[in-house]
Amino acid sequence: MADKNIIKIKVSNLKKSFGNLEVLKDISTKVTKGEVVCVIGPSGSGKSTFLRCLNKLETVTGGSILIDGNDITSKQININHVRENIGMVFQHFNLFNNLNILDNLTLAPVQLKKCSKSEAVTKAKNMLKKVGLEDKTDSFPSQLSGGQKQRVAIARALCMEPDIMLFDEPTSALDPEMVGEVLQVMKDLAADGMTMVIVTHEMGFAREVADRVIFMDGGYIIEEGTPQEVLLNPKEERTIDFLNKVL
């Protein structure tokens, strides 16, 4: 699936500080088209910040991020256009509480004039079917379970037809029995060839679905490689340490 020749995301010497706190110290990596990359590491290692830099939810302090060859850290770039092509799924779902499920899905495509209202509704219904929630169009977010909310959130991002999807600990706020349904949707998405960057604590999922695993600690990438290399035969001491604690 992964097309090694097309680079979707290229991160070079990325740095990010919050005041005096240096969260990302020097991050360089790239993601190719159709690749599924899982980012793992202890809390506070900067993995979420790294992910949020990729669609400029955080303004970077130094370095560059090229999305399809365009440097999104440059001031000239229209970040809203870039974000239309990058879907994001959050730990706490962040569905729009004032809108029903259908409106959650159609808001952005309609507002940004991606398509007409009726096309957006048709597409939204298809997406809901894909995540198994076609009967929830008129419900409000507060009436759904965590797993359902997260599946809606994925469908909402997909309605913009992005070529990249970012997941920020998508299953961390879920009850254990609901993790499976969300991971299944993500697996289907990976099988469809979506380029995905996933911050996760689900080692089983990473091993099964990821093309590449990145282990981060202290603002650096300590180790990266195939799941086989990083999860089963880690070379760095810190990776071994971390995996011993979580597995």
């Binding site: 974000r83 994001m88 959050f90 569905l95 729009f96 808001l107 991002a157």
Partner: peptide, 9 residues
Amino acid sequence: EAARSLGLT
């Protein structure tokens, strides 16, 4: 954040 991540201004 969710609204902005979809490309809304």
